[in-house]
Amino acid sequence: MFKQYVGWKFVLAAMALIIIATTIWFVSNLSQKIQQEERKKVATWVEANRELLQASSEANLNLAIEIVTTNTTIPLILTDELGNIIDSRNLDSAKIAQHKGYLKAQLDIYKKQHPPFIMEVDARQKVYNYIYYGDSLILKQIRYYPYIQLIVVTLFIGVVLFALSSANRATQNMVWVGLTKETAHQLGTPLSSMEAWMELLKENEANTPIVTELGKDIDRLKLITDRFSKIGSVPKLEERNIVEQIESMTSYIRKRASQKVHLTVHSPEQEIPAMISPPLFDWVVENLLKNALDAMEGKGDIDLYIENHPAHIIIDVSDTGKGIPKSNFEKVFKPGFSTKKRGWGLGLSLAKRIIEDYHKGRLTVKSSELNKGSTFRIWLRK
């Protein structure tokens, strides 16, 4: 599913690039042709005005008049040799009336856009006028079209990717919930049976040591079942002393770790209250500690640093293990990603979901260096 989702992202991006590149090429060619046609129209308009100025009263000026009057799209400004504005065509009359500098500003723009046409007004006195013109509204719209299309295509791809991401996330959530609920259900039956057998063993006092150890394992299985049953439902957050909670889990792991591994909890205070779901939070800490043990291969130091801030609590879990490449900082939280020969690669993914979805906090790789160790950071709101 994830690979297909990534593949679709590249396909959509490639399609968007092809569409945009093709559109820009086509619009560029089209705008150049329209620009050439508009220059020809302005040249014809200038020639028609020249005919009107130089023609005798008996001449047939119908064609020239028609050419002059039919230009209603291309904006024009007529100036004398000194640059004084004499007349204008096809500009916003309201803006001309409201703003005195509007025509001058437009003239400066037209001078940069196109070279002017020179029209001879009086051949004897050598009087000339200059006609400056700008791009028509249609040409401007065509030029802006690729950018509008780029925005539309980007929005479309964004919506599609968001929909795919939401669908992918929803599918993953369904798988997680289904898997955990089914696991909790499957564990329930043998647990009931084990409790019944333990009651029979209690009848014989000689079985007391066995009953004690078996009871511990049953309690542990009950805790695991309780954790799985809470995935997919909104857990009840309780105010707990986070230092005591972490000390308890660290003590549990310490008894089961190698004697060459040293686990230490560092906290400036003995009591730091936090709203957590105890079974799920313990699961996260246990997962981080077990990953640290696996990374150190039976020897080294694991340090847990607890920082109490006014609005949040920070818990850093540091080890002296193999470390994680920087390129894998985000990948380690992806379902199925694992550097171990055994395992499904679900532990850190579930831990991140528990912290971020249920506790509204953050779980990240704070730092890591190959062959020197890693530090995972839990950020919790007060």
Rank of each mutant, 00 (worst) to 15 (best):
W8E: 07
I20Q: 09
I20K: 02
T22Y: 08
F26C: 04
Q36K: 13
E37Y: 01
R39D: 11
K40Q: 13
V42Q: 10
T44H: 08
T44D: 12
S56V: 02
L63N: 06
I67M: 06
I67N: 02
V68A: 07
T69E: 11
T69S: 07
I74D: 04
E81H: 09
L82G: 07
L82E: 15
I85G: 10
N90T: 03
I96R: 12
I96S: 03
K100C: 00
K100F: 00
Q106C: 11
K111H: 12
Q113W: 03
Q113A: 12
H114A: 05
P115H: 12
V121S: 02
V127M: 08
Y128S: 14
Y128D: 09
N129C: 00
Y133I: 00
I138A: 10
I142S: 07
Y144H: 15
P146M: 08
Y147Q: 14
Y147T: 14
L150A: 15
F156Y: 07
G158R: 07
G158Y: 06
V159P: 00
S165N: 11
S166Q: 04
S166V: 01
T171Q: 00
T171I: 00
Q172M: 06
N173S: 08
W176I: 09
E182L: 14
L187Q: 08
L187M: 15
G188H: 10
S192E: 13
L200M: 15
L200V: 14
L200Q: 15
A206L: 15
A206E: 15
E213F: 09
L214P: 04
L223D: 10
T225C: 09
K230T: 14
K230H: 14
I231T: 03
K236E: 15
Q245M: 13
M249L: 11
S251Q: 04
V261Q: 05
H262P: 00
S267G: 02
P268H: 06
E269A: 13
E271R: 10
M275E: 13
V285P: 01
L288E: 09
N291T: 06
L293E: 07
D294C: 05
D294R: 14
E307V: 11
H309F: 15
I314E: 14
I315N: 08
V317L: 08
K326V: 10
E330T: 03
F337K: 03
S338N: 05
T339L: 11
W344A: 11
S349E: 09
K352L: 07
E356S: 14
E356R: 12
K360T: 12
R362T: 07
T364Y: 09
V365H: 05
K366F: 05
K372A: 10
G373I: 02
G373F: 01
S374L: 06
I378Y: 03
W379A: 01
